[in-house]
């Protein structure tokens, strides 16, 4: 068996193309949902933390530290296999979506918080001195600056978390790795795994280009 037969067998490709395409869509929409809700939740948490009320900050910091410290896979396994023992049954894709969103939110919160606190205090003061409320300063002055400065790390985190959708294979989400894995087991060929790798390239190469564009577009000098 030569190399192409093992990794790019045309018959195997033809057989598994349709399920693989479906899997690509599953990976894409879970990733998109995770990135949108993770960015929004992370930004919201950073905003709440900016109020510097201990009863708000403390749970946020605890949440961010826990979510950054624990491997997402462990959390997914606990939710998916642990919760049914107390009568709570969650969809496989929902568990994947929820955990990845929370993990992304934790990192995003920390990224935003670090930038918001590193902006000159004068930015907060200039806003306050012109009669803007704390929330208005946060939304119109601090947040847009933090967002622009954070585009590279936010893009990186978003790409990383999107690739973690592969963890879904462990709990039965029909995403790329899961489908390719079953196909490999079924056919005894490595070709579905090659298809999986190509599928990730097809998804993430445009995502990389888009991220470069966004980084250039929002770059500004200080």
């Amino acid at each position: 068996m030569d190399f192409f037969d093992a990794f790019l067998n045309p018959e195997i490709i033809a057989t598994y193309l349709r399920p693989m395409v479906r899997a690509v869509w599953v990976t894409i929409w879970i990733s998109v949902l995770v990135v949108i809700s993770g960015l929004a939740l992370g930004a919201l948490l950073a905003g709440l933390r900016a109020y510097q009320k201990r009863w708000l900050s403390w749970p946020i910091v605890l949440f961010a530290d826990l979510m950054r410290a624990l491997p997402p896979l462990v959390l997914m396994l606990i939710l998916f296999f642990g919760l049914p023992s107390i009568g709570i049954i969650l969809n496989d894709w929902f568990v994947l979506y929820l955990i990845l969103t929370l993990v992304l939110a934790a990192f995003v919160e920390e990224i935003f918080w670090a930038t918001m606190t590193s902006l000159p205090r004068g930015q907060w003061e200039a806003g306050a001195a012109t009669g803007l409320s704390f929330l208005q300063v946060l939304v119109h002055v601090i947040f847009p600056q933090a967002l622009r400065m954070n585009i590279p790390p936010l893009v990186n985190r978003s790409l990383t978390i999107s690739k973690m959708t592969a963890y879904g294979s462990v709990i039965g989400v029909k995403e790329i790795v899961s489908v390719a894995g079953s196909a490999q087991a079924f056919s005894g060929s490595a070709t579905p795994l090659t298809m999986a790798a190509l599928a990730y390239l097809i998804i993430f190469f445009p995502a990389m280009l888009l991220s470069r564009y966004i980084e250039d577009r929002f770059h500004y000098e200080h």
């Binding site: 930015q123 806003g127 009669g131 409320s133 208005q136 600056q145 500004y220």
Partner: peptide
């Protein structure tokens, strides 16, 4: 009470015009 700072503290993400309109509109 208008205030002018030593460090200017214009909002770097907004044009000069928008720097001047922001508080007029929001506050």
């Amino acid at each position: 009470v208008g205030m002018v700072f030593q460090g200017f503290f214009l909002y770097p993400h907004l044009s000069a015009l928008k720097n001047v309109t922001l508080a007029q509109r929001k506050a």
